[in-house]
Every structure is written in C-alpha cells, then in structure tokens.
C-alpha cells in the first residue's frame, strides 16, 4: 500500500513541479517588471521562491509520512513551527535583548491556548493531518500579529520619546507613559485579522473550506467550520499581540524607570505645539 502511495505521489509531484515552474516564471516576470522601475528584488525573490518551494516539499513529505501520527508528534511539529515563527518575528526588533524569547512565548501562548481550546471542544481532531495544517495557520497569523505589534510599539514609542519622558518627568509609572502606544500597537496587530473576518466569503474563500468541499463535506458545514478557524485566528492573534507588547513594555524601561529605547538619529520626533 505504501508503494502504491509513493507511485501516486510520484506522478502528482511531477505535475506539481511543472506547475510550480510556471508559477516561478510568472514571479520572475514580475521581478523584471519591478526592475523596469529600478526596484531591485531579483536576489531576494529568487532566494525566497526557492526556500518556499523546498520548505513546502519538505512539509508535504513530512505530512505524507506522519499522516496518521499521534497528538504528540503533531504537537512537536507545531512547537518547531512556533520556534521558526519566533525567529522570523524577532527579526523585526533587532538590537533589543530577549526579543526571540519574547516572540516565542507570545506566539506559543496565543496559538497554544486557542489550539488547546479547539482540541478540548472537539472542533479540531488531534490527527497530524488535521492538527498541523490548522495549527500552522494559527501560528502563522500569531507570528504576523506578534511582528506587527512589536514593530508598531517600537515605532510609536520612538516617535514619542519626548512625550514619554515628559510623563516620566512628572512622576508617571512607565506603563502609564506608553499606554496609548500599547493600545495602538495591539489594535494595529489585530486589524488585518479583523479585515480577514469581514472579507470572509466575500472576497476570500479560504483553503480549508475549499478542501473540505472538494473532499465531500457539506458546503454549509465547511463554511461554518472555516468561520470557526478564522475566529480562532483572531483570538490567537489578540492574545499574542497583547502578550508581546506587555512583555516588550518591560524591556523598554530600565529598573529605574528610564526609557531605554532611542530613535535613530534620522527619525528624531518633531516637537509638539
């Protein structure tokens, strides 16, 4: 039976690779188009396309092998994904100590809480074939939420150093001085997910629903299930964005309530009033 499966995959893979070549050709054309306006992304595009293809082939192989694996294996794969997501998100705030762990814990908390809730309520089965794709979607969105939240928080605080230090000078607690920036950072990190929810079904029919309908599920149930997943994405993103900014807030101040974050010389804030 395994050999049978391998043969089938073999044929699919050939067709798939041919299609992938087509996709790459289209991207290459776009890269050339960019060049026409002096936007140079050849190298980055080539690297990311190659990486993406290799990564997805590997994921396919892993899934093929572990299709019916246990919850433990699924959890392990998700943990590795969370680690990779943390590395990616932490790249947004280079130069701040502890960024990697900050991102890891906030993504793990957001995705972990939501996935645990889905497993507990039976809205997600624990087989690898189900857990990993759904889990990866949630982790990927938590990662984006984390990156957007910390980047926005950094940008807002460095743009308002004067106000933050004025508030500190008047005896305010550090948390009070950055409260407006924490709010807008969390909101900014949620916005893409809120838009995703609003456009659900109107401009966007996500892959899970398509897959379920193709494999014979009732379209109405598939639609409801897709809604549940996007709602869980929203929840995970919210938890992640909140935890990431609250953790980052601590790192932005010294023990003596001094603002440590400094804008680069180039983007010094303009004085108010």
């Amino acid at each position: 039976m395994l050999a049978e499966l391998r043969d089938m995959i073999g044929h699919d893979v050939m067709v798939g690779l041919a299609q992938a070549a087509g996709a790459i050709a289209l991207c290459a054309a776009v890269v050339l188009l960019c060049r026409w306006q002096a936007v140079r992304v050849e190298r980055e595009a080539a690297v990311s396309l190659l990486r993406g293809l290799v990564q997805m082939v590997l994921v396919g192989i892993v899934l093929a092998v572990l299709l019916n694996g246990s919850l433990l294996i699924g959890a392990l794969i998700l943990l590795l994904m969370t680690g990779a997501a943390a590395v990616t998100a932490a790249g947004r705030i280079k130069g701040m100590g502890g960024a990697l762990m900050l991102c890891f814990w906030s993504i793990a908390a957001g995705a972990g809480i939501v996935l645990a809730a889905m497993l507990a309520t039976g809205s997600l089965r624990s087989q690898v074939a189900m857990l990993v794709p759904v889990g990866s979607m949630i982790i990927a969105n938590a990662m984006n939420s984390c990156a957007q939240a910390i980047e926005r928080f950094r940008a807002e605080v460095t743009a308002h150093v004067g106000q933050v230090e004025a508030a500190l000078s008047l005896g305010a607690e550090p948390a009070v001085t950055v409260a407006p920036y924490l709010r807008s950072a969390v909101y900014a990190s949620l916005l893409p997910r809120l838009d995703m929810m609003k456009s659900l079904g109107l401009v966007w029919i996500p892959g899970v629903m398509a897959g379920m309908v193709v494999s014979g599920a009732s379209p109405v149930y598939a639609g409801i299930y897709q809604f549940i997943i996007v709602a869980m994405i929203l929840a995970a993103s919210g938890i992640t964005g909140l935890i990431a900014t609250v953790l980052m807030r601590r790192r932005v101040f010294s023990a003596a309530a001094q603002l440590l974050l400094r804008p680069a010389e180039a983007d010094k804030p303009a004085p108010a009033g």
Binding site: G162, Q163, A166, A167, P271
Partner: peptide
C-alpha cells in the same frame, strides 16, 4: 524640558 512635549 528644552522642547515642550505636551500630551494630546
């Protein structure tokens, strides 16, 4: 401070 940073 040298520059007045007021709160909104």
């Amino acid at each position: 401070m040298q520059t007045a940073y007021l709160f909104p």
